[in-house]
Amino acid sequence: MLYALCFLLFTIGLYCAVTKKNMVKIVIGIMVMEYAVNLFLIMLGYRMGGVAPIIGRSDLESGLGGFVNKSVDPLPQALVLTAIVISLGSLALMISICVRTYEKYGTFDITQIRRLKG
């Protein structure tokens, strides 16, 4: 069920990125897609009532087996962190290109920014 919501968010982002005419809205659509995927990754590793996957002193003393049984999966969290860093980079680049394009063309409307054809 929750996964379906994630997918819905993904399709909303895709719809926005594909149909909108404004460059900034396209960028927002792409970011919505990105976050839908991040959410999906986090939910993959989530476990109802789980604990954070950080080993404390008490966990070491009581044996790691119990800890492993109740902690959430840390790997998707690492993946999401990396994906966020990457999306930050691409977001910065996209926004800077939007800004530069606005300076050149004086508009954010992609229907008016079409010098390249063919």
Binding site: A78, L81, T82, V85, I86, L88, G89, A92, L93, I95, S96, I97, V99, R100, E103
Partner: peptide
């Protein structure tokens, strides 16, 4: 990350001449 994020925001706030896109903070975490 600190330096490059600062650079990104600074350059975006300048929003004019001599600014190159292409800050590269794709450092792997």
């Amino acid at each position: 990350v600190g330096a490059s994020l600062f650079l990104v925001i600074l350059t975006l706030s300048m929003c004019c001449k001599d600014f190159k896109p292409g800050s590269t903070e794709n450092e792997k975490e």
